[in-house]
């Protein structure tokens, strides 16, 4: 394998990893705060791509206006999902909340099938992202470079929000202990809604870039990326935002490299993430960055 080819695979891996990281953050934030796998996260990501499709193609709103609108709509969808499906069950047994999460996920998928049709639709990629750039002898889509840059911008804003603002402090407090946070005067429900909103908005950013990279959208497109990003969050240590980013990159680069170096295993590409998950869960269940939590009776 030539260096050129390797670099091309690496850049592909990095841009895929960035997308995984953005979506994985949504899982990890929700898990950190509610100890819940938000199964519907992958479907919220799918809905974002449809919002963009409707904004740009059906309503003909220019992309620089409709993409921010997509982020807001997706955030609202996330908040709605939390308020209707998870909030009423907050004190219920864990298994009920998990079933509810699976239910919401299927409801969104099926609603999307009914409302938007099961036939895949084209994603409206703005032209400035599709043009090619030539480096040496290889030509690479500009998008491959934009994706990591946009990801980094959003990640830094998120880290600023969480570690440098009062709201972020409140979020960290709620993730430690709901009761104590409430005693300190934090509006727990508001913070949880906000967490869902931010997580969903980041999924929307991931969705928009996913749509540009693989320009075809379908109602069931969210399942596999959703599962993989959850796996990325677990690999990094679920509940930890840095962990989600690291996990996302490990998974993205690993997946591309496996196909690049061992082309015979291409058919097993989707299984790679699950095998990695099981290995991690067995040997280091708290992930790379996770803290060990002692079980209390």
């Amino acid at each position: 394998m030539t260096l050129n080819l390797f670099l091309q695979h690496l850049s592909n891996g990095i841009s895929l990893g960035s997308l995984y990281a953005l979506i994985a953050i949504g899982y990890t934030m929700v898990y950190g705060i509610l100890r819940l796998i938000n199964f519907a996260h992958g479907d919220i990501f799918m809905m974002a791509t449809y919002f963009a499709f409707f904004g740009v193609i059906i309503f003909a709103i220019p992309w620089y206006i409709s993409f921010p609108l997509v982020l807001i709509l997706t955030a609202l969808l996330g908040i709605l999902v939390e308020a209707s499906a998870y909030r009423p069950l907050r004190d219920a047994p864990k298994i009920s909340i998990l079933i509810s999460a699976i239910g919401v996920s299927f409801l969104l998928e099926n609603l999307a099938t009914v409302l938007f049709g099961g036939v895949p639709k084209p994603f409206p990629t703005p032209e400035i992202f599709t043009s090619m750039v030539k480096i040496g002898t290889v030509s690479i889509q500009k998008l491959t470079f934009y994706i990591p840059v946009i990801t980094i911008v959003f990640l830094f804003s998120l880290f600023y929000l969480i570690y440098r603002t009062k709201t972020g402090m409140a979020m960290r407090a709620v993730s430690r202990d709901h009761e104590t946070a409430k005693v300190m005067g934090i509006n727990v429900n508001l913070i949880i809604s906000l967490t869902f909103g931010i997580g969903s908005a980041l999924a929307a950013v991931g969705g928009l870039m996913w749509g540009m990279k693989f320009p075809q959208i379908a109602p069931l497109m969210g399942i596999i990326p959703g599962l993989k990003c959850f796996i990325a969050a677990v690999i990094g240590g679920i509940g930890n935002i840095y962990g989600a980013v690291i996990g996302g990159f490990i998974l993205g680069i690993g997946e591309i490299m496996i196909v690049a170096f061992l082309p015979d295993l291409t058919g097993y590409r989707d299984a790679f993430a699950f095998i990695l998950l099981i290995v991690i869960l067995l040997y280091k269940p708290t992930g790379i960055m996770g803290e060990k939590i002692a079980e209390k009776v």
């Binding site: 796998i37 599962l227 959850f230 989707d270 993430a273 998950l277 099981i278």
Partner: peptide, 8 residues
């Protein structure tokens, strides 16, 4: 999620 993964 692990059993789901094995199923897949």
């Amino acid at each position: 999620i692990a059993t789901l993964g094995f199923g897949e």
